[in-house]
Simulated assay, not measured.
Amino acid sequence: MNKPIPLHQRRRRTMALLASALLGVATCSYGSLVAQPVAAPAKYMLMKIRLTVDGQTAIASLYDNATARDFASMLPLILTMEDYDSIERVSNLSRKLSTQGAPAGMTPEAGELTHYAPWGNLAIFIEPRSYSRSLLPLGKVDEGLSILARPGPYKLRIERVTP
């Protein structure tokens, strides 16, 4: 028969599990804390898209959120991409996208596809930048960012990748 675990050990284990959940740490068998890297939250993917410039192709994944679904409903698109602040390529869309359930803003990474809600444009980040309010996540370039990093203006065709 199993012997009951003393209260002080249950409390220690409970606190270690709580710390693990809140701080992204793991517990070893003795209940001490061991630092572990905290993984970025998973972003669920909606679909793959193809971005073509002068016959060269980049592939990206759209996130599964209302803004990205609204963007996907506009495909295929042909846009003229312009340089903006040397770290992003932007183009106006024919309409603003849904902001339902969107975050207040984001800190984009290189390769991030975004929608800047106030201007209603698509922005592809070539380099990371600091937090920007009203910048909404659409997706991420999986391969071929260098194709999109060329100086603008250039024509970009965006379409769904069919399985």
Rank of each mutant, 00 (worst) to 15 (best):
A39M: 07
L75T: 06
A26Q: 11
T107I: 12
I124Q: 00
R157P: 03
Y84T: 12
F71G: 00
E82C: 03
A21Y: 09
R89T: 13
V53P: 09
E88R: 07
K48D: 09
V38C: 06
G139M: 00
K96G: 05
K140G: 01
S86G: 13
L148W: 10
A68C: 05
G55C: 14
A35F: 02
Q100W: 10
D83W: 08
P108A: 04
R69Q: 14
P108D: 03
E112S: 06
T107V: 10
S32G: 07
E159N: 06
A16N: 05
I59P: 03
R133Q: 12
V25I: 15
Y63H: 01
V90P: 06
M15G: 12
M74I: 09
G120D: 09
E88T: 14
S91V: 11
G24M: 09
E88D: 12
R89F: 14
Y44D: 15
P6A: 15
G152T: 07
W119M: 11
L79C: 05
H115R: 02
V141Q: 00
T80R: 06
Y154A: 05
L77S: 03
A26H: 12
L145Q: 06
R10E: 09
M1S: 12
P76W: 12
D70C: 03
L135A: 03
E109C: 05
S146E: 09
L23G: 13
E127I: 10
R150Y: 05
P118K: 04
E159G: 03
L97N: 01
N121G: 14
P108R: 04
I124G: 00
R89Y: 12
G139N: 01
D85L: 13
M74S: 07
S94V: 10
L33K: 01
L75E: 08
P37K: 08
S98E: 10
S98M: 11
G139T: 02
T14Y: 10
M106S: 13
P118N: 03
I59C: 07
G55N: 15
Y30Q: 15
K48G: 07
R69F: 05
A26S: 14
E88Y: 09
A39D: 09
L18K: 08
T14K: 06
Y131D: 07
E112Y: 06
R160C: 02
Q56T: 13
V25E: 11
S146P: 07
L17M: 11
L135D: 01
N65I: 00
G105W: 10
L62M: 01
V161P: 02
D83M: 12
S73M: 07
K155Q: 14
T67H: 04
L97T: 02
M74Y: 06
Y84H: 15
E159Q: 03
I78W: 10
S29T: 15
I147H: 08
L17T: 08
I49N: 00
R12F: 05
L75Q: 10
L148R: 07
Y131C: 04
